[in-house]
Write a protein that binds this DNA or RNA. Structure first.
Lengths: 227, 227
DNA sequence: CGGGCGCGTCAGAGTTCCGTCAAGGACGGG
DNA sequence: CCCGTCCTTGACGGAACTCTGACGCGCCCG
């Protein structure tokens, strides 16, 4: 199910959006200020963010930057300001779309669909995205891992970590990036989490967990997944 | 360079767009009807399409569908019609954005930048920039070095040093600059660090480390990386 | 011819970083 | 209310990395 984060300080707008979105079977989180928005985005990993620029605690553009520091989630800006400069600033800060109030609900929903659609896995059409190694297979779409024909049980955090690594297959992923993508932007330094969960993953997926073939440590830099 | 396909039947609008885009160093193709647009898109593979819905030969939405049949190129719709239904139809047909005429050029360009930006290689795919020599290859994005088909292990400092040299491929990099970029601004004189780590790099990457072909010392000045 | 300088090489000391284990706490389901 | 699962946190031994000093070599210049 698609998860939407709605950020606006006007309760009636939030209410209208939440009702309309839930009616279309979106999952909705709501925040009424920028700090909450950033926290919720980190905790819930929405598929799209609807963001009002006029927030009580911080500039909307700062929220955009805060998000763009660690995620490419689509951001649909909502604003009462029509000036061209405002739009340009928001878009260049990393927003995906800009709608001025008052807005038509139909149009907003269509723009939201467009934003979600284009964020979907690129090579659409064919079957699921499956990454294979000698010893196990990862199905990114189905969120399933198989080893020797049997499903492997992963906890949410383990899966999330695996997902980031597999999506960057072959590339080195910095520990800061890993931490921020899995645990959220404020967890840039808790490298002990990484150590614990990498060990879990290796125990569940590697033949010889103490001599990993696929989850490779690059000391001082990060980790790398290799087929 | 980014290539833009402009589709509109009003010459003055096309002219205004072409001038503005070329001034910002975009490469521009123009079409004045739907059939030409589809043909040009196939022939030239633009990075983004700016499409007016009101075309003489076919419905703009049909053009969108025609493009979406085989490409995910961003489509930015331009239209004189303000009705919500029109927007929804175009967006659901596969358009990425919808701007109503008359439009502000600044805003249009910002939306265009946003569309191009998010189409950029996410982090998936293979398309990394790779620097090659006879004996080894350096993948800057993946932080990966291969030699004779096998991965070479580099420590953070070694990698950092290599990165600076490769990014300045062919140019001389002063020792002060190297030291400051790798070890920090306060390390302008510790040239012994350089000696040690250059030796490591050569040992790992050069065929004959004592007679380097790629990591060349310029006595008294600095070092140079040569393919 | 000899001394100074810059560079390459080597090996050891010290520090940082990583894997592992285990215990405690939060949360949800039965 | 209890129990199981999952996340967090701390501690520790060992491995990897960085730093540092010593030495030899070639080159330039006195």
């Amino acid at each position: 199910m698609t998860r939407v984060l709605v950020v606006d300080d006007e309760p009636q707008i939030v209410r209208a959006l939440v009702i309309n979105l839930k009616a279309r079977t979106y999952e909705v989180d709501a925040a009424h200020d920028g700090a909450t928005a950033l926290r919720l985005a980190a905790a819930r990993h929405p598929d799209v963010v609807v963001l009002d620029l006029g927030l009580p605690d911080m500039d909307g553009v700062e929220v955009i930057r805060g998000l763009r520091g660690w995620t490419r989630v689509p951001i649909l800006v909502l604003s009462a300001r029509h000036s061209s400069d405002e739009k340009v600033e928001a878009l260049d800060a990393g927003a995906d779309d800009y709608v001025t109030k008052p807005f038509g609900m139909d149009e907003l929903l269509a723009r939201l669909r467009a934003a979600v659609r284009r964020a979907e896995p690129a090579a659409g059409g064919e079957g699921d995205v499956i990454v294979e190694t000698d010893e196990f297979t990862v199905d990114l779409a189905a969120k399933k891992v198989q080893r020797a024909g049997k499903d492997v049980r992963l906890t949410p955090t383990e899966w999330h970590l695996l997902e980031v690594l597999v999506r960057n297959s072959g590339r080195l992923v910095g520990q800061k990036q890993l931490l921020q993508e899995v645990w959220g932007p404020s967890y840039g330094t808790e490298t002990n989490y990484l150590r614990v969960y990498m060990a879990q993953l290796r125990r569940k997926l590697e033949v010889d967990p103490s001599h990993p073939k696929h989850f490779i440590t690059e000391p001082g830099m990060g980790y790398r997944f290799e087929k």
